[in-house]
Design a protein around this nucleic acid. Structure first.
Lengths: 141, 141
DNA sequence: CAATTATTATATACATTGCTTACTATATTC
DNA sequence: GAATATAGTAAGCAATGTATATAATAATTG
């Protein structure tokens, strides 16, 4: 049993990246930022769809959206065709914030990946994508 | 701003690995398992040292140790030379559990890494190690 | 040797992210 | 029209992490 296996490394890296993000003045958590980024990319998305994209439970997303809505970064607009559902839309305040998020993400990426060649980063990215796919596959079927 | 950046990928993979581990019958959390593995590798280690190895706060580790000690997997033995400190030692019950952990870690690794060549895995592992080092560096100095 | 400082472990309180289960309101289907 | 499915939420819990504070003990310094 090794103490430097890949799972341990990943756990550490996530924790370290979280620390790095907390040094910024974004005043939001990584998942909040992520949800906001997704809304900006898929404006009008419904919560169920977004929860599926993020692979989290709808209730987990609901609370994220609560926070973002309370901060007036996004809003829930009633779906005209389905009175149960809401579409998620950006509000004005989010535009400059999204720019800051982008800068911050770039900063952390650069810090994390420094010293790695483009090729290494490409292999890393591909390997992580494969791992994601492998782990998403539901073997219980 | 991309929705498939490396930080997002890592976050997802950690969550998916956690789910995968929860399917096992280990009845312990990843961090508990990790702490147990470290104790098995560095038997007699003191809590402060172990917290440093895991790069977590001493209080975070203290609670992990509480849980493992309550389950009679490890024990705190008073340090003969320092009455403030304890050495951490395995108890009998942990031997078969460590074997099960090893099997489970191998299973999840194989599921996560399937389809990747040995070379890709090697690059992945190296890249993650570099990222860990990069992010551990305290740039505030 | 006495006083200050540092270290070890823990306590308390909190935030974030995640889960399960259950519920309401509304759509859809039989 | 009744049964079923879906969108969103509520309540409660667990795991992991943080900051700050405190008690006990060691180490250092004057």
């Amino acid at each position: 049993m090794q103490t430097n296996n890949i799972g341990f490394l990943l756990t550490d890296i996530i924790r370290l990246m979280r620390r790095e993000y907390s040094k910024s003045d974004l005043c939001m958590t990584p998942m909040q930022a992520r949800a906001l980024v997704y809304v900006s990319r898929y404006e009008g998305v419904k919560q169920v769809q977004l929860a599926e994209m993020l692979d989290i439970q709808p209730i987990t997303l609901a609370r994220l959206i609560d926070q973002l809505a309370e901060d007036r970064l996004i809003e829930r607009r009633p779906d005209p065709k389905d009175r149960r559902a809401y579409g998620l839309y950006l509000m004005e305040k989010s535009t400059p914030l999204l720019e800051k998020i982008d800068i911050e993400v770039t900063r952390v990426h650069e810090k994390a990946l420094q010293g790695l060649s483009e090729e290494q980063v490409a292999v890393l990215r591909d390997a992580l994508a494969v791992m994601h796919t492998n782990l998403s596959a539901d073997s219980s079927l």
